[in-house]
Amino acid sequence: MTPRIGIIPGDPSGIGPELIAKLMAAEGVREAAEILLIGDRCVLEQGMRQAGAEYALVPVDLEDWRAPPEGIAWLETEVAVETEASGRSVLATMDRALELLQAGHIDGLVFAPFNKAAMHMAGLAHADELHHMGERLGVTEYLSELNVLDGIWTSRTTSHIALRDVADAITPERLEEAVVLIDRTLRRSGIARPRISVAALNPHAGDGGNFGREEIDVPRPAIEAMQKRQMPVDGPWPSDTVFLKLRDVEIDAVVTMYHDQGQIALKLLGFERGVTVQGGLPYPVTTPAHSTAFDIAGQGRARVDAMRQAFDIARDMVANWQ
């Protein structure tokens, strides 16, 4: 069955509309899935002008929509383009897309970059879009962003919290949740036997307790307990070397202790190609890992690499979802 992928333009004041136009013009994209663009016509047409690409938007009937032979299937959602209004447009298109997922009209969702400040101005009640989506979809289990670059993955034991709070937030339960989530997501992406390593919190993995006891007290016994249950995980490994294993494809994923520990490594390896997977949701949802790039918005300079990667990962996840 051909996957049905919904795509929304993200913040209309950023590079999202341009990225969508470039993605639709990329070779093989429209043949790889039935695509439904969800958003305001003026925003999507704005993206075409910025990208120098043009295609017809064909309104569809949601009850039985198919990719039209000419043009691209499109569902109208009215938005505006000022900062607070941009946030409202993001929330409106995102919530509409979530309704389409729940109703079975689309199988997966790809969104262009959001701006969290604009979303909070418009009333976002959560720290990020992932937890907003989780609430709208009725998810009560563990949620975490997963980052992907060229087939290598990272997840986080802690995410959007102050660095001073990280050590206290690392618990055996939270670490196991992070490992289970990335293991399940890797399998849903087509990796039958994932290989997962855990990064240490302290330099040299604590050096036997000389640089902190966190590894001794929490990650190591938690990992040993998971290994006894045949979970494919090892560590904790010093974070300045574990990413070399990931780069050299000795493992498939690293579970990090905090947000920047994994983000810095992946963005140095390929900032323009990174993807964020919204881990823990009941549907495949992906987005480029970069920002709205207001500094180059409207200039036709945005690179579509990460948007294409996000589309490909969402398509693969739909094909392997269980």
Rank of each mutant, 00 (worst) to 15 (best):
T2H: 11
G6K: 08
I7G: 00
S13R: 15
P17R: 14
I20P: 04
L23D: 07
M24V: 13
E27N: 13
A33R: 07
G39T: 01
Y55C: 07
D64I: 04
A67I: 14
A67N: 07
E76G: 07
V79R: 14
A80T: 15
V81N: 12
V81M: 15
V81A: 08
E84R: 15
R88Y: 10
A92C: 14
Q102H: 03
H105E: 12
N115G: 12
H120Y: 03
M121V: 06
G123V: 07
L124R: 07
H132G: 01
E135S: 13
V139L: 05
V148N: 03
G151R: 14
G151H: 06
W153L: 05
A162M: 13
A162H: 11
L163M: 09
V166Q: 06
V166Y: 07
A169D: 10
L181E: 00
R195W: 04
S197E: 14
L201D: 07
P203M: 09
H204L: 08
V218P: 02
A225V: 09
Q230C: 03
S239F: 00
L244Q: 10
D248G: 11
V255D: 01
I264Q: 07
F271Q: 04
V275S: 09
S291K: 10
I296T: 00
Q299E: 11
R301Y: 06
V304P: 02
D305L: 02
Q309A: 10
A314S: 13
R315A: 14
R315G: 10
